Amino acid sequence: MSLGIYLVGYLILIGGVTYGMHLAHIPQHWIVVVDLVLVGAAILTGVTSTRQKDPS
């Protein structure tokens, strides 16, 4: 799998979560916190899933 595919998927997820939180009238600072956590999870998941194994 490509890192780009993971990141595009997570960007769609983050956009949907952000929009839902906005519609639920959640304060903006909490939306930013959740977005930062999701971006971190996206990077960790994408890198660990697409990383090549180191040669022995």
Rank of each mutant, 00 (worst) to 15 (best):
L7F: 12
A41T: 07
S2H: 06
R51G: 07
S2V: 01
V33M: 09
L23G: 04
I31D: 00
L44R: 05
I43S: 00
L36V: 14
V8Y: 00
H29E: 13
S2E: 14
I12K: 08
G40L: 12
R51Y: 05
G40A: 15
K53F: 06
V32Y: 10
A41W: 05
L36C: 13
L36H: 05
G4P: 00
V37F: 13
M21D: 02
V37A: 15
W30A: 01
G15E: 03
V17C: 09
Q28D: 13
V32T: 12
S56N: 12
V8Q: 08
I26E: 03
M21V: 08
T18Q: 03
I12E: 06
V37T: 13
V17H: 07
I12P: 01
G46I: 04
L3G: 04
H25P: 00
T18F: 11
H25I: 03
V17Y: 10
V39D: 01
S2M: 08
V17D: 05
L3K: 07
L7G: 00
T45Y: 00
L13Q: 09
M1V: 13
G40M: 08
K53Q: 14
L13S: 11
H29N: 12
Y19I: 12
G16H: 08
G9A: 08
Y10C: 03
V33C: 05
D35H: 06
G16A: 13
L7H: 04
I5D: 08
P55K: 11
L38I: 09
S56A: 11
V37R: 05
V34C: 06
G20F: 12
R51E: 09
V32L: 14
V33S: 04
S2Y: 05
A42K: 02
H25C: 09
G15M: 05
G4K: 07
D54P: 02
V39Y: 07
K53S: 15
P27Y: 12
T45Q: 02
I26K: 04
T48V: 11
S49H: 09
Q52H: 12
G20Q: 10
S2G: 05
H22P: 02
L13A: 14
L11S: 11
T48L: 08
R51N: 06
G16L: 15
V34D: 00
A42Y: 01
A42P: 04
V17T: 15
I5W: 00
W30L: 14
W30Q: 10
G40Y: 06
Q52A: 15
M21G: 00
G46V: 02
V33F: 10
L44D: 03
Y10V: 00
L23S: 10
T45L: 06
D35L: 05
P27C: 11
I12G: 01
M21Q: 09
P55F: 12
I31N: 04
H22T: 15
L44G: 06
L11I: 02
R51I: 13
G4R: 07
S56T: 09
V32Q: 06
V39M: 10
P55S: 10
I5E: 09
G46Q: 04
R51P: 01
Y6K: 03
V33W: 05
L23Y: 11
I5K: 12
Q28H: 12
G9F: 04
T50V: 14
L38P: 01
V32C: 01
V34K: 02
L11P: 03
H25T: 11
S56E: 10
T45V: 07
A42M: 14
G20S: 14
Y19P: 00
R51H: 08
